[in-house]
């Protein structure tokens, strides 16, 4: 399975055309690709070691958490740091099994505000303001 993915990568490495220098930019990736090919073959021939307990690609929790993270990353610039971080934290804390809405909200708010203070005030990094732009 791993090799299949990497075969494709290996193939793409050939598309680099060499330029004027001695070795050229393509040979090193080709070398790497060849190594991987050999290793992949070795893995197929002799799967040895403890075979991975295959529990499917991902548990439902990881997929949901990953999706939340993806959404967070996607909206952080347009929506802004404060809102998106709060929502992300509150959602994921609840998702991972917190029962009390109040506690999830309180922790999320506290963490968001202390992160904001830490980066904006102490390290003077500008974080995206997003929708709250006019009021900050």
């Amino acid at each position: 399975m791993a090799t299949a993915v990497f075969y494709i990568r290996e193939a793409t490495s050939y598309r680099n055309a060499a330029v004027g220098d001695v070795v050229g930019p393509a040979s090193y990736p080709i070398l790497l690709g060849a190594c991987l090919l050999a290793l992949g073959a070795a893995l197929l021939l002799k799967p040895g070691g403890a075979p991975a307990p295959d529990q499917g690609l991902a548990g439902p929790q990881a997929i949901r958490f990953g999706a939340a993270l993806g959404a967070y990353v996607a909206v952080i610039e347009p929506v802004g740091f404060l809102i998106s971080t709060f929502v992300f934290l509150a959602t994921t804390i609840l998702m991972l099994g917190e029962r009390s809405f109040v506690r999830a909200g309180a922790v999320a708010a506290a963490a968001t505000i202390s992160l904001w203070a830490l980066f904006e005030r102490l390290l003077s990094v500008l974080l995206p303001k997003g929708l709250l732009g006019p009021w900050l």
Binding site: F81, T85, L89, G97, L127, P128
Partner: peptide, 24 residues
């Protein structure tokens, strides 16, 4: 509790990476 710790860790990672590069 992990349910509180992990989301915060991830948020810190996201902000840290963003602060260092300023790019989505």
């Amino acid at each position: 509790p992990e349910r509180i710790l992990y989301p915060i860790v991830i948020a810190v990672c996201v902000i840290g990476v963003y602060a260092a590069s300023r790019s989505q």
